Amino acid sequence: MLKAVHIDLPTNNQGYLLYSERVPATTPYRLTLADVNYWQSDQFSVLEQYYDAPDALICLADVHAEVPVEVPIHCKLSDLYWLYQLKGTYSIHTSNKAQKVLQSQEMHYTQVYVPQGQYLTHFDKGKHQLFYFVIKPNWLLRHGKKEWRGLQKLLDNWKEKAANVRHNKQFPISEHIMLRLLNFFALPPLKRLAMDLKVYELCFNLLVLSQEDMQSVKTDSTYSNQKVEAIRSTIELQIQHGQVQTIKQLAHHYKISERWLRKIHCEIYGNSLGLYIQQTKLKRATELLDDSRYTISEVAHLLGYSGIASFTNAFKAYYGLSPSEYRIQKL
């Protein structure tokens, strides 16, 4: 398949920057039958080893930077990438530096849709190593989008030739993934057909492992939603019956940490659990105030407020008038 990413550095030796198509002797990993691009200067070096099979392309890239460096790249086609950050980090920006479209994490991987175009990759001072593979999207689509859980949106972006970079969550690189990569990097010299089969085997295994990671996120997300929905229902029921628990008590009852409960509620609903409890109490307050059998003091007590003053302050902050003013208005 067509080479996915072109590094836009000169390939004719230009004083400050030397170019070679040979792997340096000190390189720990050498890809069998790989094409090589190697640039070296006093401030940085870039080594690219890539192998092009008919339906997939793999690449191992090493960047050693004595100072922060920006490397221009050019994507000739809109493609899906599986990016594995083995060492260091990097970020990808639009060519005019107006937007950062991806920030990698060391020993993490992700799936990315990258549209055709020019980009800038930024590397901080240090050693960075990246492995990626690209599979022809048509090959993926032949199996149906339902077969690739978590990739549907990225595949849709590819089919529609969307203009913006899109990526999934970044996952830690597990021991299983690292072992498969290291075994592949250590392959002895092979004939091209045998190498093609090894590339497809690696890509397939990494695809399966990434599907398992994405499925685990989906399962965790479903569990979180169900748990928080159950807790919100409990809060509404308790407030309805004058039994108000603290967040700490709720977490203890459901055998989860208070910190996790606060965090997940905020992620799902976009606001704090404390605010939700306050709003639910104040909505219940209007129902109780509409019933003339309850005094304002009794309403405050039923909703768990420490006294009339704290109840009045909360009610007025939410509705813009005090409980007594609300009752008068309802008459």
Results as ranks from 00 to 15, higher is better:
residue 247 I to S: 04
residue 9 L to I: 04
residue 122 H to C: 10
residue 96 N to M: 09
residue 64 H to N: 14
residue 293 R to L: 09
residue 329 Q to I: 07
residue 151 L to F: 07
residue 232 R to G: 07
residue 126 G to W: 09
residue 81 Y to V: 04
residue 46 V to N: 00
residue 50 Y to K: 02
residue 189 P to G: 05
residue 208 V to I: 13
residue 176 H to F: 10
residue 169 K to N: 13
residue 296 I to M: 11
residue 229 E to A: 13
residue 144 G to R: 06
residue 81 Y to D: 00
residue 304 G to I: 04
residue 86 L to R: 01
residue 151 L to P: 00
residue 1 M to L: 10
residue 174 S to P: 05
residue 59 C to L: 10
residue 133 F to P: 00
residue 148 W to L: 07
residue 32 T to F: 07
residue 132 Y to Q: 00
residue 330 K to E: 14
residue 146 K to L: 10
residue 244 V to P: 01
residue 75 C to R: 04
residue 294 Y to F: 12
residue 254 Y to P: 01
residue 84 Y to V: 04
residue 135 I to K: 01
residue 145 K to W: 02
residue 96 N to R: 13
residue 85 Q to S: 11
residue 48 E to K: 09
residue 170 Q to Y: 02
residue 212 E to R: 14
residue 53 A to W: 01
residue 251 A to F: 06
residue 151 L to I: 05
residue 262 R to Y: 06
residue 188 P to F: 14
residue 5 V to K: 01
residue 218 K to R: 13
residue 145 K to H: 10
residue 259 R to M: 07
residue 92 I to N: 00
residue 32 T to C: 15
residue 329 Q to H: 13
residue 74 H to G: 03
residue 217 V to P: 00
residue 174 S to V: 06
residue 104 S to R: 10
residue 322 S to F: 06
residue 256 I to H: 07
residue 233 S to R: 07
residue 168 N to Q: 11
residue 115 P to V: 04
residue 247 I to T: 10
residue 20 S to P: 03
residue 45 S to P: 05
residue 209 L to Y: 12
residue 207 L to E: 08
residue 309 A to H: 15
residue 202 L to F: 06
residue 304 G to E: 01
residue 238 Q to V: 06
residue 69 V to I: 13
residue 314 A to C: 09
residue 25 A to H: 08
residue 43 Q to L: 14
residue 193 L to T: 15
residue 205 N to H: 15
residue 97 K to L: 13
residue 202 L to Y: 02
residue 39 W to M: 05
residue 99 Q to T: 14
residue 245 Q to D: 07
residue 137 P to K: 07
residue 201 E to G: 12
residue 291 D to N: 13
residue 109 Y to D: 01
residue 97 K to S: 08
residue 330 K to Y: 12
residue 305 Y to R: 05
residue 167 H to E: 08
residue 129 Q to W: 03
residue 322 S to N: 05
residue 66 E to Y: 07
residue 225 N to C: 10
residue 327 R to L: 06
residue 12 N to R: 12
